[in-house]
């Protein structure tokens, strides 16, 4: 991974209103155990990650947003390239942070991602 590596995040349909994603997209959900799942953009394209997420894992996604490794590390969040349960899988680790800190970092990451724009969007 390089500083420019993009970490790809799938966006649930209920997390978008009138084209605007919620900052919750970059906040780990309770099932994530403080680890935000992303795809390593060096290993898979945004469209291929969406296809994998919706077809192989059978989850819902309306598209793909991304933050760079530099942006994540700028928030002092470690990135773990686990490679499991699939090769391209990585986690952004929010372990040990207070809810306020999680919210702050999630908002900042969402802002970077929204500025970058959608890397892939499902066609209607």
């Amino acid at each position: 991974m390089s500083p420019e590596t993009l970490l790809l995040r799938q966006v649930h349909p209920s997390f978008v209103q009138n084209g605007r994603p919620t900052s919750q997209v970059f906040r780990p959900t309770p099932k994530d155990e403080d680890k935000l799942s992303v795809y390593d953009g060096d290993k898979i394209s945004p469209e291929a990650s969406w296809t994998h997420y919706t077809n192989v894992l059978a989850f819902k996604s309306v598209g793909v947003l991304a933050v760079s490794l530099t942006e994540v590390q700028g928030q002092e969040l470690p990135v773990i390239a686990e490679g499991v349960p699939f090769l391209e899988h990585c986690s952004v680790d929010f372990t040990g942070l207070t809810k306020t800190d999680v919210d702050k970092k999630a908002k900042q990451l969402a802002s970077y991602a929204v500025t970058r724009g959608w890397l892939f969007q499902r066609t209607a």
Partner: peptide, 14 residues
């Protein structure tokens, strides 16, 4: 506001 559900059953206005 923009309004979204939260996983815990609440809502988030933004």
């Amino acid at each position: 506001p923009f309004l979204y559900p939260t996983p815990e059953g609440g809502l988030q206005a933004e």
